[in-house]
Design a binder for these strands. Structure first.
Lengths: 123, 123
DNA sequence: CAGGATCCTTTACGATACTG
DNA sequence: CAGTATCGTAAAGGATCCTG
C-alpha cells in the first residue's frame, strides 16, 4: 500500500528541497544578503551606517529587514543610551554561520561576471 | 581628486555586494533554486516531471522560470519529436557550477531546522 | 504533452513626510 | 539618530481555461 509522503519516509531530496525553502524564506527579499554580508564584514554598525553602506536601500526597507533578521536571531540589536539614542547592529554567532553560504553566492556571482565579460569579448 | 565609484576603483566589498546581487537576481523568485536543484539531481526531466517533482508550482510559473533559466544558460531545453511533442530539460554544464551554492544553502537550512527543533525541545 | 493567455490577489518595494 | 506612517506602483505569484 502506497503511503503519502510523511516526515518519516520523506525522500532525501525532499528534505533538501525543504531545507532550501527554509533558507530562502529567511533570506528572501532584495536586501537580506546585503545586510548580513555587510554586518559580517564590519561588525557593530548603526542604522545610518547601514543606510550608507547598503546602496539604494531606504529607511523603511532597512528597518523592516533588520526586524526580520533580528526575529530569526541572525542579527543583534543593541540600543545605546546616548543623547539622541543610537543603535548598534551586529551579526549574531548564529548569523555568522551564513558566511559560507554568502561566500559561495559571491564567488559564483564573480565567476558569472567573468563569463559574461568573455562572452561579450568574443562577439 | 575624488572619483565616483567606477569599475576600476570599486572597493572589494562592493564587488562582493555586486556579485551577490548578480547571483540573486538570476536566481530570484520562489522556484529557481528548486528547479535547478531538481535538475542537478535527476537529469533529463520533462515538463510534467518537473511539475510533479516541484511541489506546489503551477504551469505558468514553471514555464516562466524555465525560460529565465534557459536564457541564462543554466538549463537546456530539448524538444523531442514524439507523437505529442515532449521536452527534455536538463542542467547545463554551467548551471551545474551552482551545485556548491545550492549545497551550502541546503546545508544551512538543515542545520537551521535542527536548531529550531532543539529550541522547541528546551522550552 | 507543453505551455500560452487571461484575470486576479498579494506581496514587495520605494518616496516622502513625520516623531520621540 | 532611529525609526514609523502613509501612500502609491510594480512585480510576483496563482487559478483556470485554452491550444497545437
Amino acid at each position: 500500500m502506497k503511503k503519502k509522503s510523511v516526515i518519516n519516509d520523506t525522500p532525501v531530496c525532499q528534505i533538501r528541497m525543504q531545507a532550501i525553502s527554509d533558507t530562502m524564506s529567511i533570506l528572501s527579499g532584495k536586501w537580506k544578503f546585503h545586510i548580513i554580508g555587510t554586518l559580517i564584514e564590519g561588525n557593530k554598525l548603526g542604522f545610518m551606517d547601514l543606510l550608507r553602506e547598503i546602496d539604494g536601500i531606504g529607511t523603511k526597507m532597512l528597518s523592516k529587514e533588520l526586524q526580520d533578521l533580528e526575529m530569526n536571531q541572525l542579527v543583534n540589536r543593541k540600543v545605546m543610551d546616548t543623547k539622541p539614542i543610537t543603535v548598534e547592529y551586529s551579526i549574531t554567532e548564529y548569523g555568522a554561520t551564513l558566511a559560507p553560504v554568502i561566500n559561495e553566492i559571491a564567488k559564483w556571482g564573480i565567476e558569472y561576471r567573468k563569463s559574461i565579460f568573455e562572452a561579450d569579448g568574443e562577439q
